[in-house]
Simulated assay, not measured.
Amino acid sequence: MKKMIAEFIGTMTLVLFGCGAAVIAGMGTGPTAIDILGIAFAFGLSIVAMAYGIGMISGCHINPAVSFGVLLAGRMSLSDFIRYVIAQILGALAGAAILAVILSDKAGGWSGGLGQNGWGAGYLGEYGVTAAFVFEAVATFLFLVCILGVTQKGAPSQFAGLAIGLTLTAIHIVGINVTGVSVNPARSIGPAIVGAGGNPAAVAQLWLFILAPMLGAAAAGLLFKSGILSADTE
């Protein structure tokens, strides 16, 4: 239960701060507005904060794709994987709900946007489904290579949270205009479901933000399980 609570809080924080940066500060004007770099760091720093806050309890996966990669790498049980995913999705829904409450109290009104992921005409850089799928799969693969690498035996674990957070920041800098960046099915599910009334297309496109990250994570997990990417000390 401690692990589930930690994963719930961690995923809630990621969605609230990361997506919150995009829809509150990212869409503002004047001195309070931020750009892609600011949004990217909001997601990355959320990971850093939670890695040191809950990492000793649950490992701070806060992402079903991360948990899937860890499972396939042989570092967690199937039962724990199922519990983690449930907690992560509930946490993402809670984070999106909190963000919706804040935005709904804006005097100028609110469009219903919660930083939902997407692709196609009218969405940010208007990239197609192929670009979206390739980016999400490859970016998640590289994200898991970092995570599984810095958390294996012999790695300098005290710097793991920082390395993982900076990797997620870099992924966002490159990919925000492509898909808004998911690499995390829970991060996509929470805003899409809670904000379905304001952006129904996000729900229809959820399949990509579940399938592509899980495939990328699986590839990384299997490479570590096979020993190809494992350090000699493991």
Results as ranks from 00 to 15, higher is better:
residue 99 L to I: 05
residue 112 G to T: 01
residue 90 L to T: 02
residue 82 I to E: 07
residue 100 A to D: 07
residue 92 A to K: 01
residue 79 S to Y: 11
residue 78 L to W: 12
residue 105 D to G: 10
residue 106 K to F: 15
residue 123 Y to H: 14
residue 86 I to K: 04
residue 108 G to N: 13
residue 124 L to W: 06
residue 112 G to V: 02
residue 135 F to N: 04
residue 109 G to D: 05
residue 103 L to Y: 05
residue 87 A to E: 06
residue 105 D to S: 14
residue 134 V to K: 00
residue 93 L to Y: 03
residue 118 G to N: 03
residue 127 Y to V: 12
residue 126 E to Y: 02
residue 128 G to Q: 03
residue 92 A to T: 07
residue 106 K to P: 08
residue 93 L to D: 01
residue 129 V to I: 15
residue 102 I to N: 07
residue 115 G to E: 05
residue 111 S to W: 09
residue 132 A to H: 09
residue 82 I to W: 10
residue 132 A to L: 03
residue 92 A to C: 10
residue 116 Q to T: 01
residue 129 V to D: 13
residue 110 W to K: 12
residue 130 T to H: 12
residue 126 E to S: 14
residue 130 T to F: 14
residue 85 V to Y: 05
residue 84 Y to Q: 04
residue 132 A to K: 08
residue 116 Q to W: 03
residue 83 R to T: 05
residue 93 L to V: 08
residue 132 A to D: 05
residue 87 A to L: 07
residue 108 G to H: 02
residue 122 G to F: 07
residue 102 I to M: 09
residue 93 L to F: 05
residue 83 R to H: 12
residue 128 G to N: 14
residue 130 T to S: 14
residue 119 W to G: 09
residue 108 G to P: 07
residue 104 S to G: 06
residue 79 S to N: 14
residue 132 A to E: 10
residue 107 A to V: 11
residue 100 A to M: 15
residue 118 G to Q: 09
residue 117 N to D: 11
residue 134 V to P: 00
residue 126 E to I: 05
residue 103 L to A: 13
residue 127 Y to L: 06
residue 87 A to M: 05
residue 113 G to D: 09
residue 84 Y to G: 09
residue 123 Y to P: 08
residue 79 S to K: 15
residue 91 G to N: 02
residue 104 S to D: 01
residue 88 Q to H: 10
residue 103 L to P: 08
residue 119 W to N: 04
residue 84 Y to L: 06
residue 133 F to T: 09
residue 121 A to K: 15
residue 94 A to G: 00
residue 99 L to C: 08
residue 121 A to M: 14
residue 95 G to S: 06
residue 93 L to M: 09
residue 126 E to H: 02
residue 135 F to C: 02
residue 90 L to V: 09
residue 130 T to V: 15
residue 104 S to T: 01
residue 108 G to D: 10
residue 134 V to Y: 02
residue 128 G to Y: 04
residue 122 G to Q: 02
residue 110 W to Q: 10
residue 88 Q to K: 11
residue 93 L to I: 13
residue 98 I to N: 03
